[in-house]
Design a binder for these strands. Structure first.
Lengths: 347, 347
DNA sequence: TTGTATGCGTTATCAA
DNA sequence: TTGATAACGCATACAA
């Protein structure tokens, strides 16, 4: 019952605290704190002694107390669109790498593209006193987001190009990525192309449309691009889109898809109709998903690096950079992975 | 400078606390606490008044303080093998759904199959006072894990069948899943089969080997299974494995892969050699990845439900079930998704 | 029904 | 170099 017992057996419900360590080591509780936070100020002998006790008793300090006292948090908040999508998974992994190096775990929330969930999670993260929130915003101008900013919560937008606001953002240059795809197709002589894209309510889809259409418009050719929008960017939607593609323009020689899953669906839809890729129709994807290079034909696609986006965003969020007033967005360059799914138009 | 100011503008560094709300509402701090935690005990008029103030000032309570006072945590810890893998992503999503409903966010850690990281993350989570830890253990018998258990940290093992220990576990029945694949191939007359599997250091790979080989052994046929182990379960490894498969047994009529990425690699390797699936060789995968049904041919595969595993594990971890001494593991049944990649052996 | 007072485990300030 | 002490913000026991 005594709180000052020094044996290593404790009643189950009670967790070890620094006072118990202090008692066991015969020092004051403040000294235990110093051993942990200011090792330089404590005498070597005392340090050794306290450390030995902490290790033998397997002491784990209470972060809630530390955070409370410090007036800040020691976890990084993360709100992504869909954690079951490898793109966001990789991004989380990147953020985690940086955060863990600073002793902070990441609290991950998957908004499922719901503005309501976004708001709830944001408040939840704030109440947990996170040191910053990396967020792929569904509603970039919501009162919730503005409130968080006003409250002083550090925010970093993820993969969200249009950051007219004063919040910093980290993402890939989707306009440029789509442009790369367009230029590759143009270089291979494709003039009649279809663009299977997601809804324009998604910022990335808007950007990809802009880049692709602009590049074609500026090509000075008589090329014709038809954009086909599907509700979700899944393989199933890609499969379904093939019909629309062939109906709208039966003479397409190339299809650009806003992500690799769509491209996979399109690939299947084409092969079902006996249309061979790339002999009859060329195909370009986006994301460079794990499966892209293992398809037949290996998929030519635009590679973005979510891992690096996560790392960079976490770096910005956790670096000293207090009350950062430099809203210079970090934009990572995409890269075209040329593989086998594009062939030149025969003369 | 006064802490008792009632306007909504505050100096930036200082965050709102319940005392400030109390002051603004003209009540005591305890009453504010009661409004939040025991609304029934406070007079309707007072309740309205306090609520109005909290909303107008956009008050976010401090979880660190609450957790400290409560002596517990209000976040769910999660240690998965690889967050960039959709399997684990879906599992996280399932866990999050349950946790969020209880007002708890999930702290996600990706161990990358490193025992060292596992240990570090475990301590980090413990120091954050998580209410429980869902973990896919790399080293199920490590001192770190034992220590956590001894300390009273509630643990739930994920996707880890061999739970001879007294810790509860939630996972899919991989022995049964592999058996389903075997029976399907047997029913289609396949007697010469290859099994492309990952390393036996992974619990799931061991189980799948057991189920598959047992089912074939018990089939009472003269069937022959050759297991080929690859270091990682990637598409690239599957591609590389094709050579070994054909070398070891040139007359294989079917290949079973321990996951869909391997199957994808094998599919490509076979088609490169002019071997058609399923006409010449049948193929079965595992996981039912998003891309499986969009492949050509659509991949017959064993479906497990990581989302449901996550939900169930979180339920167990967060339900009342204090100091649960019922180590009955929860085992979810896998399901065979019959599609197009298996054909009967022609007579 | 509401208010006063106390302590959760930690860190920082100051005295010894 | 170390120790006593005072917060941090909140929830509870108890008094009013």
């Amino acid at each position: 019952m005594e709180p000052s017992q020094t044996t290593s057996t404790r009643e189950p419900g009670k967790r070890l605290n620094s006072r118990a360590i202090a008692a066991a080591a015969g020092v004051s509780q403040a000294t235990v704190s110093n051993v942990l936070n200011h090792p330089d100020v404590v005498a070597p002998a005392t340090y050794q002694k306290v450390m030995a006790v902490m290790e033998s008793l397997d002491f784990v300090p209470n972060r809630s107390a530390r955070d409370l006292r410090a007036g800040g948090g020691s976890a990084l908040g993360l709100i992504v669109l869909d954690i079951s999508n490898p793109f966001w998974g990789e991004l989380v992994r990147g953020a985690e790498e940086i955060a863990a190096a600073k002793g902070q775990p990441v609290i991950v929330c998957s908004s499922e593209q719901s503005a309501k969930k976004e708001e709830q999670f944001l408040r939840l993260l704030e109440s947990h006193q996170v040191s910053a929130v990396l967020i792929a915003p569904v509603a970039p101008d919501s009162p919730a987001l503005r409130g968080a900013r006003r409250r002083g919560t550090k925010l970093v937008f993820l993969d969200h190009a249009e950051t007219a606001d004063e919040v910093i953002s980290v993402g890939a240059d989707d306009v440029q990525g789509a442009r790369l795809a367009a230029e590759h197709l143009l270089a291979n002589g494709h003039r009649q192309v279809a663009f299977v894209n997601g809804p324009h309510s998604i910022s990335a889809c808007r950007d990809r449309a802009r880049g692709f259409l602009q590049a074609y418009a500026q090509s000075g050719t008589d090329a014709h691009v038809t954009e086909i929008n599907v509700p979700a960017m899944t393989g199933r939607d890609g499969l379904a889109a093939v019909e629309a593609v062939l109906e709208v323009n039966p003479s397409v020689s190339a299809v650009f898809c806003a992500n690799d899953m769509l491209a996979l669906g399109v690939l299947r839809g084409l092969s079902r109709r006996g249309v061979r890729v790339p002999e009859h129709v060329s195909l370009v994807g986006y994301d460079d998903s794990e499966f892209a290079e293992v398809l037949s034909p290996a998929l030519t696609t635009v590679r973005i690096d979510p891992f690096e986006i996560g790392r960079e965003a976490a770096r910005i969020a956790l670096e000293a950079s207090l009350t950062e007033t430099s809203p210079a967005p970090v934009i990572l360059e995409p890269r075209l992975m040329v593989r086998e799914s594009v062939a030149p138009i025969g003369p």
